[in-house]
Amino acid sequence: MLNITRFGLLLTACLLLSGCAESNYTWGWHIVSPFDARGQTNLQFLMNGVFSTISVALVSITCSVILGLLVALPSLSKNKPLLFLSRIYVEVFRAVPMLVLILWVYYGVPVLTGLQLSVFFAGVIALALCDSAFEAEIFRAGLQSIEDGQREAADALGLSYGDKLRFIILPQAVRRVLPPLGNQFVYMLKASSLLSVIGYSELTRRANELVVVEYRPLEIYTLLVLEYLVLILLASWCVRKLEHRLARSDRTATR
């Protein structure tokens, strides 16, 4: 399996890297060792962040896919004002750095609205908004790649606009955009690490907190790298499985 070889290579690289550390550096792996009482507690503390990382990424990507699709839908019509709005949306949210939007939503929105946002909720809003600009572009390309003839056939049969979207256009578009959507999900898993700055207790935040207590940045961050690596390899494996399943049921018309 390709994934396993890749993982193995990275592990070797990590070990090599540790060999390159200053020669007088004494490794302190015991602080995250599963065979050590304190290490176990620390390890547990770090690993528990995985659920926070996955849940915030999943909720954010779901919101951003829906948002992105809504923003992309006007590209099917010739409605000028709607097209303009969707253009503006994409340009704005593509331009704002994710970290900046996270800070703005978490510290700014409560001042603006008086609503106190939880870190999770603030994080989801910021990640989803930023990412939705990219999702919109992906969907736009996907929707526009559907041949005019498909729309015309649906129209000629008298299908309503909603049915045309639901049965003809979206099923074909979704199959075509699945690979880039999968990439965005992987990207979202990584981007969720930015939420550590507002104190969301995911993988990165927990690693930071542990570093302050244990003062072992090299060991802890190395472990963090491995955590993300495993998580993301698993995620891309799932995405690929899903693609294969859809590809099997997909048939592209030959002309």
């Binding site: 498909q150 015309e152 056939a153 049969l157 008298g158 003809i168 074909q172 199959r175 592209t252 002309r255």
Partner: peptide, 20 residues
């Protein structure tokens, strides 16, 4: 339009079948 489209069928040069 809905009435007309339900009375009028169309066959295209490129077939335009739904491939999925």
């Amino acid at each position: 339009l809905a009435t007309i489209r339900s009375e009028v069928g169309m066959v295209f040069q490129q077939f335009n079948l739904f491939p999925h």
